[in-house]
């Protein structure tokens, strides 16, 4: 016998709270992405460094952080790091940091691919013109690499956005968290999780579609 009582009115009632939760998911994923961009670029530059030691270290860090599940990373940062080094992270900070570390390892790969896609002749031409190494990177190589980097970066972001849903396990009050505590009072987990899931799929599918479009657009002008 099934005694579950469907009550879709609960959605009407708690919709604003679910959306507020979604806002927190977006916020934490964007902060995580910002960390990932900086960390990933540093790692990619390390992996392309002329110094062997730096290359080895950067490669090892990338491999390590790519292989550790985000879920483990989250617990490692929030419980492990904070206890060991007496850093009091808020749930939000720990979540964003874990997303940033994992995302950074993925972005390192993306940036490396983008930087390597720039014709070496560009660097040589800049050098022949007497431009410094730093300026060559920031004004010649990087802007060209950016075009190759943007579409896969959006895909990494979608990955982080999906990953960001797990932060509710450490108590960040995102959409799933809202659905969880509302369903404890209303006993309508099916309705709440269904709506949360559908909102999420709509969001990720549209962003992925946008990435696909960008890829076609940015790829258009390339002759190679």
């Amino acid at each position: 016998m099934n005694s579950y009582k469907f009550d879709w009115n609960v959605i009407d009632k708690y919709f604003p709270e679910l959306i507020r939760g979604l806002g927190i998911t977006l916020e934490i994923s964007l902060v995580g992405m910002a960390i990932a961009l900086v960390f990933g670029l540093l790692l990619a530059m390390g992996r392309l460094s002329s110094m062997r030691f730096i290359r080895t270290v950067a490669n090892a860090i990338t491999q390590l952080f790519r292989s550790i599940p985000l879920f483990v990373m989250l617990f490692w940062v929030y419980y492990g790091l904070s206890l060991k080094f007496h850093i009091l992270f808020t749930e939000f900070q720990a979540g964003a940091l874990a997303l940033g570390i994992t995302g950074g390892a993925y972005m390192a790969e993306v940036f490396r691919g983008g930087l390597m896609a720039v014709d070496p002749g560009q660097r040589e031409a800049a050098m022949a013109m007497g431009i410094s190494r730093g300026t060559t990177f920031s004004h010649v190589i990087f802007p060209q690499a950016l075009r190759v980097v943007i579409p896969p970066s959006v895909n990494v972001y979608v990955g982080l956005l999906k990953g960001a849903t797990i932060v509710s396990v450490i108590g960040v009050s995102d959409m799933i968290y809202v659905a969880q505590y509302v369903s404890l009072q209303t006993f309508t987990p099916f309705e709440l999780y269904s709506v949360a899931g559908i909102i999420f799929v709509a969001l990720t599918v549209s962003i992925s579609g946008f990435a696909w479009m960008l890829e076609r657009r940015l790829g258009r002008g390339r002759s190679d």
Binding site: Y193, A196, V201, T204, S208
Partner: peptide
Amino acid sequence: FFRGIPLYVLIIW
């Protein structure tokens, strides 16, 4: 659908 939904959300659902 299955590419868009996060595992955590799917499993909870």
